[in-house]
């Protein structure tokens, strides 16, 4: 059994992170975002707390994962109304926690649920909120957040005038880490009169049929951009990926063109990858994309433009037509 605590008894002024739970399982991004928060916590002398909302503790399957995390504490709120994600109710629970425990920071992984939840809280509490942060640091005792912006090769450094400092953190931008000391677990008792009602009624749920791709953990990534010229050419990447046991990634423009689904997007609003080998076919390398792959161990760029940013950051740049090289590569590998 885990110890129950009232809101008033919880540690004040901490760094809180939202631990997204679905079907009794924790989203891997929750473990990732604890890594930079732990560093901030040590510098600022603040505790790091993971908050998990769920319908009931018995159905939670990832307790062992959380025990190994770097969080100092895990706060669990359990109530049958939390069985489905409801934007308004989830936000109200977190708002109540923020009001009572006056945290120093409140962070969300930039998942679709995290991006739905964070702005509701920021709006209600009149707080600033940074989006898609991929680097955090402390300057003069303040949290400074870094993110790419304007969809171009431009990086912005941001601070917030309001407390708690709030941000959504890019998925995959931080590596998971594991602690030596098990966090303390508390079940949070919400106040007596808390209103569990939601204006949202979930009528039906149809789980995704397709398996989520393994892009963020792939050892080899073959990615394509507009330089491949057509959807047909782009689709050949899947054949190559099969041969190399790789995953297929894409740039934002080609996802918007409909060449491939958006869950293959690498970059600011997509996935961050760090494979052993990354091969970019016809990708010029806008920052929007490169922040999501720049930590790859070995980068290959195939492009006609010698001046393209990806060509410059590549360990090996092949100057030529991406679709011709792709065709020929597949042909040779088949032999």
């Amino acid at each position: 059994m885990i110890e129950k605590k009232n809101l008033e008894e919880l540690e004040k002024g901490s760094l809180l992170a939202f631990g997204e739970i679905f079907n009794g399982k924790i989203h891997p991004s929750a473990i990732e975002v604890l890594t930079p928060l732990k560093e901030l916590g040590l510098k600022l002398d603040k505790k790091v707390v993971l908050i998990c909302l769920m319908d009931n503790f018995k159905s939670f399957q990832d307790l062992e994962v959380l025990k190994k995390s770097v969080a100092d504490e895990v706060w669990m709120v359990c109530h049958q109304e939390l069985v489905h994600f409801k934007d308004d109710l989830y936000a109200e629970v977190l708002i109540e926690i923020v009001k009572t425990t006056s945290p120093y920071g409140l962070f969300f992984p930039a998942t679709s649920l995290g991006c739905a939840l964070a702005p509701r809280i920021a709006g209600k509490l009149n707080l600033g909120l940074c989006a898609h942060v991929n680097y955090l640091e402390v300057e003069d005792g303040k949290i400074v957040m870094v993110r790419p912006t304007y969809g171009e090769n431009i990086i912005a450094k941001l601070i917030l005038k309001t407390t708690p400092v709030m941000a959504t953190l890019s998925i995959g931008a931080f590596s998971p880490s594991f602690g030596e000391k098990e966090p303390k677990f508390f079940e949070v008792a919400m106040p007596e009169g808390f209103n569990w009602a939601s204006k949202i009624k979930v009528r039906k749920f149809k789980p995704s049929v397709k398996q989520p791709n393994r892009l963020s953990t792939a050892k080899v990534v073959v990615a394509g951009g507009r330089g491949l010229k057509s959807k047909e050419n782009f689709e050949k990447l899947f054949e190559l990926a099969h041969m190399l046991k790789a995953e297929v990634g894409a740039t934002r423009p080609v996802c918007y063109e409909g060449w491939v689904e958006e869950d293959r997007m690498i970059g600011v609003s997509g996935v961050t990858v760090r494979p052993k080998v990354y091969i970019g076919f016809g990708i010029s390398g806008a920052l929007q994309h490169t922040v999501g792959m720049e930590n790859s161990e070995f980068i290959v760029a195939v492009n006609t433009d010698k001046e393209a940013p990806l060509v410059k950051m590549a360990h090996l740049a092949l100057i030529g037509d991406a679709s011709q090289v792709l065709d020929l590569l597949i042909k040779k590998l088949k032999k």
């Binding site: 450094k157 601070i159 005038k161 309001t162 410059k312 090996l316």
Partner: peptide, 16 residues
């Protein structure tokens, strides 16, 4: 409440 302290353009130097 969100304040931009600095914006900068990322430049790439050929390295490979």
């Amino acid at each position: 409440p969100t304040q931009v302290v600095e914006v900068f353009e990322k430049k790439f130097e050929a390295k490979g």
